[in-house]
Amino acid sequence: MAEQNEYVPPKVWTWDAESGGRFANINRPIAGPTHDKELPKGKHPIQLYSLGTPNGVKVTIMLEELLAAGYSDAEYDAWLINIGEGDQFSSGYVELNPNSKIPVMLDTTTGTRVFESASILLYLANKFGAFVPEEHGAKTEAMNWLFWQMGSAPYLGGGFGHFYAYAPFKMEYPINRFAMEVKRQMDVLNRHLAENKFMAGDEYSIADMAIWPWYGAMAKGVLYDAKEFLSVHEYEHVIRWADEVGARPAVKRGRMVNRTFGEPSSQLHERHDASDFDTKTQDKLQG
């Protein structure tokens, strides 16, 4: 390992706002709002405030899958929360999610706020009775993998993704440590999907919706530009599953919502009607 200057922690830690990193301008060691601003509300029963990151995509996939399955009460307004500009620290947002992370959802039919992506998926699954297996064993398996994702993704995003892609300079030890863990996680999935069509067996569920935006994207080489570094071609069963889930029309639509990067035709910054996919993607608005 290359020699590095050793960091000696002080007796009492203090926040250095100039410590660097891609998201240094929005990071802070306290909670609460930074400014007063009410959240907008649309006409649909469900109001979603989000961004097209993996955690946000989980929920828009679920909503589009519900609509595709005929659950018209799952109609939703998806409002863009620009985390780079600190939208998540507005008073209106913090009222719905005191943790100031995306996504957050408001069910206007009950006045219920729901934050944390897995909680939103479970809320919608329970509300509509969809995308969770009815049989107890299969349902438990879906829950196993849903909570596996919630516990594992911080290593993939906050760990590997941060040090490999976002830290102000490359550091060998944390990159090696988190690359090892991400490859172990990918192997866990690859072994499971060698014997199962979907995460909970033969039935597509919220477990697939939760895992696909993170690990499906990694398997397809579109996350952190780390395809070669992590040798993702080794995970052939994850790639097979990622292709199958990614081919679903509702998944294709869901990954476009609140997306602010990539090809303009793949970006639907806000979604307020099903027709927006045909008329309000960025290529249409810019054209």
Rank of each mutant, 00 (worst) to 15 (best):
F23H: 14
T279R: 03
T112G: 02
Q282E: 15
I120P: 00
E181M: 09
L51Y: 07
R113L: 02
V222H: 04
E95L: 13
F229S: 10
M1I: 13
V8D: 05
G111F: 12
L223P: 01
Y166Q: 09
E65M: 03
G42Q: 04
I46C: 04
A165M: 09
I61K: 00
Y235G: 01
R22E: 12
G159Q: 01
G287C: 09
E18V: 08
T110H: 08
K43Y: 06
A247F: 07
F147A: 08
N82H: 13
D73K: 12
V59D: 02
F147K: 01
P103R: 09
D225M: 07
A31L: 15
I81E: 02
R253N: 12
K41C: 13
R271D: 04
N99K: 11
A24M: 12
N97G: 04
E263D: 15
G157A: 13
A142F: 03
A118Y: 04
W148C: 07
K58V: 07
P103H: 08
L67R: 02
A250L: 08
F131Q: 00
D208V: 10
V188T: 15
W212E: 03
A78R: 03
W13T: 04
V8W: 02
T112M: 15
W79V: 04
T14Y: 03
F23T: 12
W145E: 00
W148E: 01
F261Y: 14
S91M: 12
E263G: 01
E263Y: 07
K170E: 13
A207W: 05
W13C: 05
S266R: 08
A274G: 15
S117L: 08
N5S: 13
R271Y: 14
F169C: 08
L121F: 07
